[in-house]
Design a protein around this nucleic acid. Structure first.
Lengths: 220, 220
DNA sequence: AGCGCAATGATTGGATCCAATCCAGCCTTT
DNA sequence: AAAGGCTGGATTGGATCCAATCATTGCGCT
C-alpha cells in the first residue's frame, strides 16, 4: 500500500528515528528509490511535511530535515499545556457531559491500577502512555473545537511534544515519581471539570505540561 | 511565474475571496485549466493546503474547501491571544531588547498619529492595519521561538484570525472606538514589557484579542 | 415498473519523459 | 598562478501518459 500519505507517514518515522539526519538535504530520487515508489508521491509529501514543520525549504530548491533544539521541544510542550488548558476551560465553562466524565474516570482507574503495581515494566510504560494519550485526547475532543484540535495536532508533530511521549523509556526510578505526580494532576483535573471550576482546570492543565519537561530534560 | 508555491498562494486567495465555495470539491484538471498550469503543481499544493487547514480530505479521493464557522474564527482569535500572550511573557521574562522597545514605541506613535486625526479614511484603516500587523509580528519575533512563530503562523491561516484583519472595513463609527481601545492596550503592553511585568503582559495580550471579536461579531 | 448489475466515462494516483536550472570541476587565458 | 568562464552531470520542476478506481447511466432481468 503506497500513496503519498503513507510516504509522508514513513518519512515522519524516518525523521523521528534519526534515519534522516537533521539538516540533511532530501533528494527526491534517492527517497523514491529508498521507499520503492516513484517521485510523484514523494513530491506530494515533501511540501506537506514542510507545512507540518518537519522539513524546511532549502533555498528554492528542495528541502532539508529540520532540526529541533531542546528549547524547541520545551516550547512545544509549553504550547501544548496552554492549548489544552484552553480546551479544558472551555469544557468546564460549558459543563462536561456525563460520558466525558465517565471516560475520563476510566482513564483515572486505569492509571491508578498501573501505578499501584509494585514493579513497573515496559509494558506498563506503554499502557500508561496509551492511557495518557487517551486522557488528553478526551480533553481536546471534549472542547469540540476544530481549531483547538487542529492547532494541537500541528504542535504534536514536534518530537517528544505529544502527550503520548510522556513515558519515553527512562530509568523507572526517575519516571515513576513523575508519573505519580502527573496522575495526581489527572485526578485534580477531572475533579475540577466535574465541579466546573474553569480557571482552576485551566491552571492545572497548564501546569500539567511541566512534568514531561522533567522527564525529557534528562534525555536531551 | 508558476511553481506549486504560487499555486498554493493563488488557491489561498481564491478560497478567501470565496471564488471557491466552502464544501466545494476541487477537481485537479479544472483547477489546472483555471490557473493555466499542469496537474503536477496542483497536486503538490493540495496536500500542503490540506495540512494548512484550508482544505479537507474528502474521503480518500480529492479535497474539499473547508468551511469556517463563526465559532471557528472566534476560537482562532482566542488561540492567537493565548499564543501571543505566551510570546509576550517570554519577552518580559528574558527582558526586552532596547531595539525591540524602540520598534514597538514607533508603532505606538504611528497609531497615536492615525487615531488623532479627526476624520478616519480608508487609507487610515490600511495604515493602522499595517502598524498593528507589525506590532504583533514584533512581539512574536521578539520571543525568538520558532515553535511559537510556527504555531501562530498556522493559526493565522483561518480567515479573519490574523492580526492584520483588525481593521476589516467596517463602519468607522463602530471601528474607531474599538481601535482606540485596542491601541490603549498596545501602550499598556509596551509599558508592561519595559517593566518586565511578565504576568501582566500575558494577561494584557490575551485580553487584547477580544476587541477583534467585537469588530467581527457584527460582520459574521 | 422497479431493482440491480454491468459498462462506460470521469477522475485520481503513479510513473515516466523532457526541459530548465544549478553545481562542480576543469580548462583556458591573462 | 589565479581567476573567470565553459561544459558536463545531477537534480528539480512541469507536463504527459497509463492504470486503477469510483460514479453514473443505461440496459436487462425479475
Amino acid at each position: 500500500m503506497i500513496g503519498y500519505k503513507n510516504v509522508a507517514l514513513r518519512l515522519r518515522e524516518m525523521i523521528l528515528r534519526g534515519e534522516l539526519a537533521p539538516g540533511e538535504r532530501l533528494a527526491e530520487v534517492a527517497l523514491a528509490a529508498r521507499l520503492g515508489v516513484s517521485r510523484t508521491p514523494i513530491r506530494q509529501a515533501l511540501p506537506a511535511l514542510a507545512r507540518e514543520g518537519l522539513l524546511a525549504a532549502a533555498g528554492r530548491r528542495g528541502f532539508v530535515v529540520r532540526s529541533f533544539s531542546p528549547q524547541d521541544v520545551l516550547d512545544a510542550i509549553e504550547t501544548r499545556g496552554l492549548l489544552e488548558g484552553l480546551a479544558a476551560r472551555r469544557i468546564a465553562e460549558r459543563g462536561a457531559t456525563p460520558e466525558l466524565l465517565r471516560s475520563l474516570k476510566e482513564c483515572l482507574s486505569q492509571g491508578d491500577a498501573i501505578l499501584a503495581k509494585r514493579r513497573f515494566e515496559s509494558a506498563d510504560e506503554a499502557s500508561y502512555s496509551d492511557m495518557n494519550g487517551r486522557f488528553h485526547a478526551l480533553i481536546v475532543e471534549g472542547a469540540a473545537s476544530r481549531i483547538f484540535a487542529d492547532t494541537l495536532a500541528h504542535n504534536d508533530h514536534v518530537p517528544f511534544a505529544s502527550a503520548r511521549a510522556v513515558a519515553f523509556s527512562r530509568d523507572p526510578a526517575v519516571l515513576l515519581p513523575v508519573l505519580n505526580y502527573a496522575h495526581r494532576q489527572h485526578h485534580a483535573i477531572v475533579q475540577a471539570l466535574a465541579n466546573r471550576e474553569a480557571a482552576r482546570v485551566e491552571a492545572l492543565m497548564r501546569e500539567h505540561a511541566t512534568p514531561v519537561k522533567e522527564v525529557l530534560n534528562l534525555k536531551l
